[in-house]
């Protein structure tokens, strides 16, 4: 079987069994329990929560990210197996949101991690969240959700930005 065809089949298979990582990074995580449990029940889409990053496919950035969390999120993202996808919730990861002038939150997520799908709203309603899942499935089907390839390709740029946010290049905390 040729590589492209195999790719296509694996995409169809992975689209129907996306496991999301159970990591509540911000306040958007409060709309995840309704999505995960009986009222919206995302298992209808074949999605389920997964505790370990090694087995998860989707990383949900639920809202704002503080610098301290970003370090963990980057660790977690790098532990995940490819193909892996990132969904960002709400306003904060797009352009800072409510915390646009805060000293401790990173404002634009796409400078540190490749984002596949953005959901609007503060909080996004569960319907919005489900729309994002459906959109991600569509993108995977079409082979367009390629954030992880982008992360590999521009790894140096992403690493540089992450280090800048963590403060290494500001020259103030070399000791860390």
């Amino acid at each position: 079987m040729r590589y492209e065809e195999w790719n296509k089949i694996s995409r169809i298979a992975s689209r129907k069994s996306l496991w999301m990582l159970h990591f509540c990074t911000g306040c958007g995580a409060v709309e995840l329990p309704p999505v995960m449990t009986s009222r919206y029940d995302m298992e209808r889409f074949g999605m389920g929560p997964m505790a370990t990053p090694r087995q998860a496919d989707v990383l949900l950035i639920t809202g704002y990210l503080t610098v301290k969390t970003l370090k963990r999120v980057v660790n977690v993202y790098e532990q995940m197996q490819s193909p892996k996808y990132v969904i960002s919730f709400g306003s904060c990861p797009i352009n800072g949101g409510m915390y646009w002038d805060s000293y401790n939150t990173v404002k634009r997520l796409d400078r540190y991690l490749p984002v596949d799908v953005y959901v609007g709203g503060c909080m996004p309603r569960p319907e919005g969240v489900m729309n994002a899942f459906l959109e991600l499935m569509k993108l995977i089907d079409e082979g367009k959700a390629r954030g992880w390839e982008k992360y590999q390709k521009y790894y140096e740029q992403y690493k540089r930005n992450q280090k800048m946010a963590f403060g290494f290049e500001r020259g103030k905390n070399e000791g860390d």
Partner: peptide
Amino acid sequence: GYLHRGFEKLMESRNWMQNVPLVCRICVP
């Protein structure tokens, strides 16, 4: 500290009405 957004600092730079949408974000549930 994973969720520290500096609310108290942000509230000092907003006026009394602008703080109303901000305070509810302190406790999510």
